[in-house]
Nucleic acid binder design. Structure first.
Lengths: 122, 122
DNA sequence: TCATCTAGTTACTTTTTGAAACCAACAGAC
DNA sequence: GTCTGTTGGTTTCAAAAAGTAACTAGATGA
């Protein structure tokens, strides 16, 4: 393996900086269902601001993970979609998000137990 | 599905905030190879500061993803290891990091192409 | 004429991050 | 004895990032 995410100098780390980001994960996953327009992404992903969304989209486009298509409608509409490489990545992202959703009960139990142990110790 | 990562009010989003973090991904993945001590993690994961590492470890421990074991040696040693749930999560994290490493060539090509298009347009 | 839609950008504030110093407690070298 | 290095952290402070809200343009509908 020529690339190593554990090495801060390795370009793979730079990509991890883009991909290992909660907003990027949500955007990728949302695009996995098909092409989506800018404002639709913003509305669907609760809490995502326009500024951060446009930054995330630019990074993902630069990395070749998504495409940006402008339609000359009035007003102009812009559609974002996964590239083949983006789809390939998303195949690994989906399980991560799905895992979070399906293990929440166990996680919440662990958090409660942890907090209780802390307050007992104090 | 009772939980929804797209909803900013959902606890699943809070967990995504912990898990969708480059440092947490690297820590989890490193622990996937077996228990590791604090300073070993810090040394192995290039660029990770003590402060951030201790924050990440606390969050992951609270979420029930890792265990923290103190050995009364001199000086004291602390070992971190994945719980069963952590291992389960890591099964989804590994492919993500591996994907980044094995697709770097294609990503770098996309970045170069993107940058060239930008400079041409300017 | 005023508000609304599109997809962003810009300015400002607040939060988070990262670098470095510091802590205690002990072992071994000098 | 005291200087260095080890352990696993916490604290402090400056810098970077993120969030909030306002603003852009150009056409549509009320």
């Amino acid at each position: 393996m020529a690339y190593d995410v554990y090495d801060s100098e390795c370009p793979a780390r730079a990509v991890l900086d883009h991909v290992g980001d909660k907003w990027a994960l949500l955007v990728l996953n949302r695009l996995g269902e098909g092409p989506v327009r800018f404002n639709a992404l913003r509305r669907d992903i609760n809490g995502l601001s326009q500024k951060v969304l446009s930054q995330v989209l630019k990074r993902l486009e630069r990395d070749g993970l998504i495409t940006r298509t402008v339609f000359p409608t009035v007003p102009v509409t812009v559609e974002y979609a996964l590239t083949r490489m983006g789809e390939c990545l998303n195949a690994n992202v989906g399980p991560l998000l799905h895992w979070a959703e399906s293990n929440m009960d166990q996680i919440r139990a662990a958090q409660s137990a942890y907090d209780e142990r802390l307050s007992e110790a104090a």
